[in-house]
Computed example of a mutant assay.
Amino acid sequence: MSIPMSPPGVWRNGSSPAGRRPIASDLTAEDAIARFGSGLERAAGAPVPRLGLAVSGGPDSLALLLLAQQAMPGRIAAATVDHRLRPEAAAEATFVAGICASRSIPHRILTPDQLLTGNVQSAAREMRYRLLKDWADAQGLPFIATAHHADDQLETLLMRLARGSGLSGLAGIRRRNGPVLRPLLAFEKMELVAICRAAGLTPVNDPSNSDHAFDRVRMRHLLADHAAAFAPRAAQRTADAMQQAEAALQWVMHREAALAIAPDDAGGLLLHAAPYPREIQRRLLAEAMARLGDPPRGDRLNSALDRLRGGQRCSLGDHLGVPTDGAWHIKPAPPRAQR
């Protein structure tokens, strides 16, 4: 059995779909399509009228393409980003274009208008999302789906745990980030590979996925050696719980900010944080600094918070934090002396 090719609802050999026959040991086409639809609507918070797909040609994104075609026939379009960083990338983009053409799925190859410099991995990610958003806007597509899955989520949670991340970091990959949706977070990697195999597709292989210079690749190999100890879908349940806790704390912070944060007469803010637990204080301090356009992050924010809680002044970027009269006064720092 294969995932439907074209037209929707007809298998590759022209017969009617037999959705209860297994693709993998515990996955049928019917189940996979239903799980995709559920994941998509949960990510968007409502039914999705049309959907753009980010398709690189790897097994994850090809499975995304196949599932979306069956779940949303005639309502999808795909795009492939060629960063021009590898000589094989152009051929991989053309490969995806051919698959889409054979299934009557609109497709575009997107290329940056300038070479990437600096931290290439970070710059490529930022460029990829900018190109995809511009393309989706031009096509009238309200959402873009990427192929992040449960194994990606597990890797992300463990990497952030190893770095000492707080609650926000341990919330992992969000189901939605603006117009970007991740409908495959309930799928494991092996299931997406099986979907491609059932469709008779041989995905491309990005060599960077085997480059141990990247933290994620090292974590992936570590997990492969201890596969029985970790369950990717359980990691997604943990991420969901963390995201709900994060949302609850942010709701409390925003409600209390109306009472706790007030402007002074000199372009600064007064933060009345004493009654609150430390985590709410931290979030209120971050909110106050964001309002001043000078938000500290991570360790800098925690260090400043500890000093303020201890009754000490602290530096907050271009501002000073000064405990005064039961509050924390956040005010512009004086100009630095010229040498």
Rank of each mutant, 00 (worst) to 15 (best):
S2W: 01
P7D: 14
P7Y: 08
R12F: 13
P17G: 08
A18I: 04
A24D: 13
S25N: 03
L27V: 03
L27Q: 12
A29Q: 02
I33E: 11
I33D: 01
A34H: 07
R35N: 11
L40V: 07
E41K: 11
E41D: 06
A43K: 11
G52N: 04
L64N: 06
L65V: 04
L66F: 08
A71V: 05
M72C: 01
A77H: 02
A79F: 00
P87V: 12
E88Q: 15
A89M: 09
E92K: 08
C100I: 02
C100H: 01
R103H: 14
S104P: 00
I105P: 05
H107P: 14
Q114F: 15
N119P: 14
S122I: 13
E126L: 11
R128F: 05
Y129N: 05
A138R: 02
Q139H: 13
P142F: 13
F143H: 15
Q153A: 04
E155P: 00
L157H: 02
L158Q: 03
R163M: 05
R163E: 14
R182G: 00
L184K: 03
A186D: 14
E188D: 12
A194M: 11
I195F: 02
R197Q: 15
G200Q: 08
T202Y: 06
F214P: 05
D215I: 12
A235Q: 03
Q236T: 09
Q244R: 15
E246H: 13
A247G: 04
A247W: 02
Q250L: 11
W251G: 14
W251A: 15
R255G: 09
A260H: 07
P275D: 14
R278V: 09
E279G: 00
Q281N: 04
R282Q: 14
L301G: 02
S303A: 11
L305V: 07
L308Y: 05
R309S: 03
R313E: 12
A327R: 09
A337E: 15
